[in-house]
């Protein structure tokens, strides 16, 4: 520590307070988790996390989180690109609502999605509801029913209580991550490169693949990783929409809650350690990516 900055007062006070508060409220509790899990022997730990109910929940968590992250990878990129590059009506409104999943309590999100994707919900029964709506409108104008009832019965998404519902809410909670990590890079991107590439005769698709995408790829990957990490830990919204049947539709965080309710603290902490390890691993990957892209920038 150099003496230079000591001219500004308050380091002992603020640093001491920060370290105390951080240790007492974050590090100590996390250490308790490690300690509790550490009290188990290795075979015991292994037995807990290979319990069929636990592995099923971990598998479901990974499967749904991966699928949700992939959907966000594609649509997040499309959304970020459209918002930055194209002008369209209500563009700023759509930009503002991107942050909505950050702001909306997860319980509310779970509640409304569970309701929407019920068999006869607006989206769960999208086809029949659409027919209903169109025919009602037609009735107002005096014409007869436009669409025969049952015409769109195949267009339904009754996902509440199914894995599809879990994926849906995980897409929602992870949605802002990809958009908000890619967007700043796209905003800083100077279209002159594209004009130059275009003047050299490159096709737009080639320009995107060879010129633009490499530039946004690190941000995109870390955005997808963040969305995945968020999805793995998500609890509130999922339990509203999932059927929560042990061994079939329980996500890993719900397994923790179930074990806690049964006072199986060691088992709960073992699953907790697995989840924590995953989030820390993703954190490391993202930090690695960021320092890689910084180095890359410096040499470029």
């Amino acid at each position: 520590m150099s003496r230079t900055h000591r001219v500004i007062p308050g380091l002992p006070l603020t640093l001491g307070y920060t370290l105390f508060y951080l240790s007492a409220l974050v590090l100590l509790p996390l250490a308790a988790l490690a300690l509790k899990a550490g009290q188990m022997s290795a075979p015991e730990f292994f037995r807990v996390i290979t319990d069929p109910v636990v592995t099923a929940s971990l598998r479901l968590t990974f499967f749904a989180s991966t699928l949700a992250a992939l959907i966000n990878a594609v649509f997040g990129l499309i959304v970020a690109w459209s918002l930055v590059r194209y002008d369209f009506p209500l563009r700023r409104l759509f930009d503002a609502v991107i942050d909505f999943p950050f702001a909306l309590p997860t319980a509310v999100a779970g509640l409304t999605f569970a309701n929407l994707f019920l068999k006869d919900g607006w989206l769960g029964g999208f086809g029949p509801r659409l027919v209903e709506g169109v025919n009602a409108l037609a009735g107002l104008t005096g014409a007869g029913p436009l669409l025969p009832s049952g015409a769109l019965d195949w267009l339904t998404f009754p996902y509440t209580g199914q894995t599809g519902g879990i994926v849906i809410v995980l897409v929602f909670v992870g949605l802002p991550f990809v958009v908000r990590t890619v967007q700043p890079v796209l905003l800083e991107w100077d279209p002159e490169y594209e004009i130059a590439a275009r003047s050299l005769g490159a096709k737009p698709a080639t320009i995107f693949a060879r010129v633009i995408f490499p530039e946004i790829a690190p941000a995109w990957v870390s955005g997808v990783a963040l969305a995945f990490a968020r999805a793995v830990g998500e609890y509130g919204s999922v339990i509203f929409i999932a059927a929560n049947i042990p061994g079939r539709s329980q996500i890993a965080p719900l397994q923790i809650v179930t074990r806690l309710d049964d006072f199986q603290y060691a088992q709960a902490s073992a699953i907790g350690v697995v989840l924590l390890a995953i989030s820390l691993l993703i954190l490391l990957v993202i930090n690695g990516l960021e320092s890689f892209s910084r180095r890359h920038e410096r040499t470029a």
């Binding site: 920060t18 951080l22 974050v26 590090l27 509790p29 996390l30 308790a32 988790l33 300690l35 509790k36 997860t106 990490a229 793995v232 830990g233 998500e234 609890y235 509130g236 965080p253 719900l254 923790i256 809650v257 806690l260 603290y265 709960a268 902490s269 907790g272 989840l275 924590l276 989030s279 820390l280 993703i282 954190l283």
Partner: peptide, 19 residues
């Protein structure tokens, strides 16, 4: 470390206090 709670599952956040 200050950012750490963002990457911890809420359920784990509750669990650690129970433990």
């Amino acid at each position: 470390l200050i950012d750490l709670p963002f990457s911890v599952s809420p359920v784990v956040a509750g669990l650690v206090f129970v433990l």
